[in-house]
């Protein structure tokens, strides 16, 4: 069998030698931090205009992650491109000829890319948190407060999982364009819209992004959001189940279909 460290090294070379890696990950960080900072400043300025319920459940940690709605899209693009360019360039045939063991190939690739996404996600999450707190003024919280560290680390985990989920979907669909065409509108529009429609939200709260983002809330059901039937870790668990399903689907497609 192929040597796993060798394949990991090879996949690391692949990830670091394409320009899309840099621009997607830098975008994820910059967009998330900048937008989170902007919304935190806005919240501080308009705190008095919030409803009573929103003031009561005000979650300064969660507010400082507001930019992730947009920033996660860059993570989706990163995840999709890591897998999708193998197909669009035709490199997949060369890659599989070099590493014919499908599981070793796929999971090494995903491990390397997810580790990178996770590292960038963690940095992004901490930067967004500190930037947000600095701008929230008297409404701020600290890393030492109850559950705050869990939420900040959770923000990093969330970004890594979003990237991994996208890799799984791209492996199933075997196309960057198709994957982006489905995932970007889904995370940016469909999920966001359905979660605010009364009947649909009971389903939408089990979507990977909605469930997973619960980990970033310190105050349960922050800012008057709906009561979820699961806690922060339960939500992350639901997201992990989605990721596992995408990975399994991707692996089966890679194994069964002709390259």
């Amino acid at each position: 069998m192929a040597s796993v460290p060798a394949v990991l090294q090879s996949e690391w070379t692949k990830v670091r030698t394409v320009s899309s890696t840099v621009w997607t990950l830098v975008s994820a960080l910059v967009v998330t931090v900048a937008m989170s900072a902007g919304i935190s400043a806005l919240m501080k300025a308009t705190f008095d205009e919030l409803s009573e319920l929103e003031q009561a459940t005000f979650d300064p940690t969660f507010v400082s992650f507001s930019g992730m709605i947009l920033g996660q899209l860059a993570m989706v693009v990163f995840g999709v491109l890591v897998v999708g360019t193998e197909y669009s360039s035709g490199m997949i045939r060369t890659s599989l000829a070099a590493v014919p063991q499908r599981a070793t190939f796929l999971f090494s690739k995903m491990a390397v890319a997810t580790a990178l996404a996770l590292a960038v996600g963690m940095v992004t999450s901490f930067l967004a948190f500190f930037a947000g707190q600095a701008l929230l003024g008297e409404h701020r919280t600290t890393l030492g407060a109850d559950n705050v560290l869990r939420a900040v680390i959770g923000g990093g985990l969330y970004m890594g999982l979003i990237a991994l989920f996208s890799m799984g979907v791209a492996t199933m669909l075997r196309s960057s364009i198709l994957s982006l065409g489905i995932l970007v509108p889904f995370f940016f529009l469909v999920s966001q819209i359905l979660i605010s429609v009364p009947k649909a939200k009971t389903v939408a709260q089990y979507f990977p992004d909605q469930a997973g983002s619960k980990i970033m809330q310190v105050v349960p059901d922050a800012l008057g959001s709906d009561v979820a039937p699961y806690g922060p870790w339960g939500g992350l668990g639901i997201m992990c189940a989605w990721v596992a399903a995408a990975l399994l689907g991707g692996y089966l497609v890679l194994k069964k279909r002709d390259a």
């Binding site: 060798a6 090294q9 090879s10 996949e11 692949k14 030698t17 394409v18 320009s19 360019t85 890659s95």
Partner: peptide, 18 residues
């Protein structure tokens, strides 16, 4: 069979390393 955005050397390097 190769990724166009990668240099010739790097394309071969990832194959070699695997």
């Amino acid at each position: 069979a190769m990724h166009g955005g990668r240099s010739a050397y790097n394309n071969l390097l990832c194959l070699a390393q695997s």
